[in-house]
């Protein structure tokens, strides 16, 4: 995610890089962006610009990554990817890789898979209670269309929101009991402000939002 305190030159470069890395397996593209971001972190604009100049064009880096990861040039996008990728393509295809065929990795998933996975996350739990949602989340985790942090958000957000709602309810209970003269004894959390039905409704609502968000994240790449 972009860091608001980064100089503009760094933010622009990382955005360009992220866009250029479309089609590269998510694990690899995440590592590239994270590795470069950590190196540019904390630098002033002038120093960062010098480092960026040494790094080279994002399209070139992406083309190299695509070639090395065994992703066909067509899986990427942008005119810059094809030339450099083609230049190094032969070497990648014929190169020696430790452990044999371990270098073969697939490109991003087909669009229908992305849509179906997002739909399962959004509505799977309503159609087939619990199981439908689990299928959706499993599809998301098996997919290359989303970054690891996006998968984590999709998985834990519904529970986190409900937990926060419960804790909020408990806090309200605590405060109201603490202020009443007849409370006297031990505090017993009621979670009274958030009923099980409300929690269920909240989870369904969050899942719908998460599903739409996942679809938007995947399709805008």
């Amino acid at each position: 995610m972009p860091d608001p305190v980064q100089p503009q030159v760094v933010r622009s470069y990382l955005s360009e890089l992220q866009a250029a890395l479309i089609g590269v397996p998510t694990e690899v593209s995440d590592e590239i962006v994270a590795g470069i971001a950590e190196e540019l972190s904390g630098l002033d604009a002038a120093t960062a610009a010098t480092r960026i100049e040494g790094l080279g064009d994002p399209m070139f880096i992406a083309a190299e990554a695509r070639t090395e990861a065994g992703v066909p040039a067509a899986a990427g996008q942008g005119a810059g990817a094809s030339g450099v990728g083609a230049a190094a393509g032969g070497a990648a295809a014929g190169g020696t890789v430790i452990g044999g065929a371990a270098g073969t990795q697939t490109a991003a998933d087909p669009r229908w898979y992305t849509v179906v996975a997002s739909l399962f996350v959004a509505l799977g739990g309503v159609v087939i209670p619990v199981l439908g949602w689990i299928v959706g989340i499993a599809m998301v985790w098996l997919s290359k269309s989303w970054r690891t942090w996006e998968k984590w958000v999709a998985t834990v957000l519904p529970f986190t929101v409900v937990l926060v709602a419960w804790l909020g309810g408990a806090l309200v209970d605590l405060l109201s009991q603490g202020g009443s003269p007849e409370s006297g004894g031990l505090y017993e959390p009621q979670f009274g402000n958030v009923s099980p039905m409300s929690s269920l409704f909240l989870i369904v609502l969050i899942n719908v939002i998460v599903g739409i968000w996942l679809l938007w994240r995947a399709l805008r790449r």
Binding site: V28, G35, I61, E64, E68, A69, I98, A102, G103, Q105
Partner: peptide, 16 residues
């Protein structure tokens, strides 16, 4: 040629 070559290689080495 660039850092773009390195990370797929590191991912592969880590997978192995």
């Amino acid at each position: 040629a660039s850092i773009g070559t390195l990370y797929p290689m590191l991912t592969r080495l880590r997978t192995q």
